[in-house]
Each structure stands twice: as structure tokens, then as C-alpha cells.
Write a protein that binds this DNA or RNA. Sequence first.
DNA 1: GTCGTCTTTGACGGAACCCTGACGGCCGCC
DNA 2: GGCGGCCGTCAGGGTTCCGTCAAAGACGAC
Lengths: 227, 227
Amino acid sequence: MTRVLVIDDEPQIVRALVINLKARHYEVDAAHDGATALRLAAARHPDVVVLDLGLPDMDGVEVIKGLRGWTRVPILVLSARHSSDEKVEALDAGADDYVTKPFGMDELLARLRAAVRRAEPVPGGEDEVVVDTAEFTVDLAAKKVNRGGKDVRLTPTEWHLLEVLVRNTGRLVSQKQLLQEVWGPSYGTETNYLRVYMAQLRRKLEADPAHPRHFITEPGMGYRFEK
Amino acid sequence: MTRVLVIDDEPQIVRALVINLKARHYEVDAAHDGATALRLAAARHPDVVVLDLGLPDMDGVEVIKGLRGWTRVPILVLSARHSSDEKVEALDAGADDYVTKPFGMDELLARLRAAVRRAEPVPGGEDEVVVDTAEFTVDLAAKKVNRGGKDVRLTPTEWHLLEVLVRNTGRLVSQKQLLQEVWGPSYGTETNYLRVYMAQLRRKLEADPAHPRHFITEPGMGYRFEK
DNA sequence: GTCGTCTTTGACGGAACCCTGACGGCCGCC
DNA sequence: GGCGGCCGTCAGGGTTCCGTCAAAGACGAC
């Protein structure tokens, strides 16, 4: 199911959007200020964001930049401002589309569908959904890890960390990038989190956790997943 | 360079677009009917398409479908029709954005940039990130060095130094520049650092560290990396 | 409220890394 | 030949970084 994050401080607009989206079987989260929005985005990983630029606590463009720091999720901007400059600024900050209020619900939904559609991975995707190693198997689509015929139970954070690493198989992922992708854009220095969770992943997946063969530490730089 | 295909039967609009796009260093192809457009798209593989829905020979939506049959190139629709149904139809047929005439050139260009940006491959595109030599291979994206089938382990400082040198393959890099890029702007005279780390790189990567073939010293000036 | 699970936090030993100084070789120059 | 500048090599010591453990805090289920 497609997950939408709606960010707007006007309750009636939020309500209208939520009703229409839910009726079309979207899963909807709502935030009424920028700080909540950024936190929710990090926690819930929406498939598309609908953002009103006029927020009480921060400039809408700052929200766009905050999101673009760590994700390419489509951002559809709503705004009462018709000025060309505003549109250009928002789009160049990383927004994908800009709709002026008042808007037609049909059009908005069509733009939403377009944004979601083009963000979809190529059909018959080139990216592997299942990654095999000698000791275990990761199924990114099913969100499952199998080891020795049994499913391994992972906590949400463990899974998220594993996912980022596996999607970058063979590549070094910096500690900052890991922290920001898993814990949110405001993190970046809390390397102790990584140490703890990397240890848990190794304990659950490595044959010999003390001498990891798949979750490799690059001191001072980050971690790397190898098949 | 980014290639744009403009499809419109009104010469003055085409001319305005072509002038503005070329001034911004886009490469521009133009078609004034749907058949030509489809042929040009297949032949030239544009990075983005600007399509006017009102064409003489065929319905604009048919052009969209014709393109979508084989490509995911971003399509930006122009139209004089403001009706919601038209927008929905075009977007659902596969358009990425819909701009109503008369439009502001600034806004159109911003939407064009947004369309091109999100179609870009994942950051750090496909461009040469792997550098080969006779003895070893440097993958700048994965931050990996392979030598004789085995990965070579480098410390952060070693990496940083190697990276600067490799990004300037064949060119002389001054000691001052190396020191400032690797150790920070307040360094510039601590050439002993360079001696130590250059030695470590040679020991790890050169076949005969005493007679380096890739990491070459230019006495009094700096170092150079050669393939 | 109580329990269980998950996350966050702090502390510690050990390993990895970076800086530093010393020494020797090579070369050009006085 | 002696000297100084420049570079390569090596090894020790201080510092940072990582793995590990344990316990407290947050959260939801019952």
C-alpha cells in the first residue's frame, strides 16, 4: 500500500485530503508543523509527501531541504502563493511538483499518482530483491531474513540498518549516512547506536560474530556489507 | 549535456523555448507534429520531453502513450486547456507534469529542472568511478581498492590522499594542495605527513614500493598519480 | 499497573590509527 | 669533501575509534 505524508496546518485541508486519500486506499500520516513532519518522514518512510509551504514553525523550503538531505521521496508542494519566484525556489530546493490553492482534488490526486508512478522501480526491476550469502538470505521485498531454513527475527531498527547496507552491497556506507537514513536527518554523530546495532546484526547473522565476514567495519569511515 | 525534445505546432512558442533552453546550455530538438516527435524521440533519446497537447496530426495523449510504450523519459505537458479532466487524463497516461498556457518561462524551466533531476540515476552517477591500473583497481564510489583479486585495506587518511590523487590522474598535485585537502585548510607545510602516508600507499599498492610506477614524486613540488 | 520488547545511554578494555622524531640516502651547491 | 635540503623508512606513544556488556528508559499489549 502506498503511504502518504500530508503536512499542513489547516485542519480542514488535512481532513479533506485524508478522507480522499483513505477512500482510495492510501495509507496516510499527517503532520501540522515542519518539525513533526521531518520526524514522521524519518520514522514512517512515506512513498510520497504532500507539503503545504505555509507552516507555523518553519519555512516550507527548509522542510524540503531537510527531506532532501537523506531521501528522494517525491514531494508535492501545495501553496496559496502564485508567485513564480516561490515556485522556482521550491522546485529548485528539491520539490517534484507545485500546486496552487485552491486546487481541484481530481488534479491533485492525478499529480500524486504521477509522482508515485515515476518513483516506482523499473518494472521487471534490475535491482535484486533477494540477496544471498553463504550463511543467510535477505528478501528485501518480503522484509524477511532466512538463516539455515529458519526466519530470523529482527527489530525494526535492525532491519532498517540491514536494508541500507544490503542496498549498497559491496559499497562503503559512511557512519553519517547510516545514521541519517536509519535514525533521521538530525542524527549523524551518535556512532554508539551503530556499534550497538551492528553488534546485534552480527550476533544474529554472522557465523562467527567476533570475526565478521559480511558486516565489515572500516575504522573511521563506516561499514560495508559483502556477500 | 541535457537534451530536450520540444513538441509544439506554434512556431512562436517553439522559438521562445528553443532560445531560452539553448541560452541555458540545453541541447534542443524540435518537432511540430506527433509523428515527427515520436520519430525524433526514438532517434535522439532526449533526457526530457516538453509536449504541447494541441497537435495537428494526433491527440497529445496518444503521443504520451506512444512514448510510454518504450521509455520512461520525463514528459512535461503544455496545454491551453485548464479543465481538470484533461490534466487527469494526460497525467494518468504517463505525463510527469502539466503546465497551462500562458506559462511563465521561469516556472517552466524550474519544472524542467525538477523533472530532469529526479530522472537522474542515483547520486554519483554512472560516470567513471572506477580507475584501473596494471596492478590494482580503485573504485571511488564503493571506496574500495582491489589488488590481485583481494581488497586492500586503507585507513581514512590513506583513502583521502589516494582519492585526491586519483581524481587528478596524470596531473601534478602540489604538496600544499594535498595537505590542505586531506588534513584541512590550516595545514600546508607539514610535508612529513605526506612522506609517511605516501610510503604507506606505495607499500600497499605498488608492486615495488622502492621504485614506484604510479605514485610519482616530483621533488620540491608534489606528487602525481599515473595509471 | 505490569510485563515484555525495543531503544537509548554509559562505561570500559582493546584495537586501529595518526602524529612525531630520528635516521639514512640521494642530490646539488658552496 | 662537506654541507644542507629533500625524500623515504621505521618504530614508539598518545589518541581516537570500535566491540561488548549491562542497565535504564520508552513504548505498546494485555
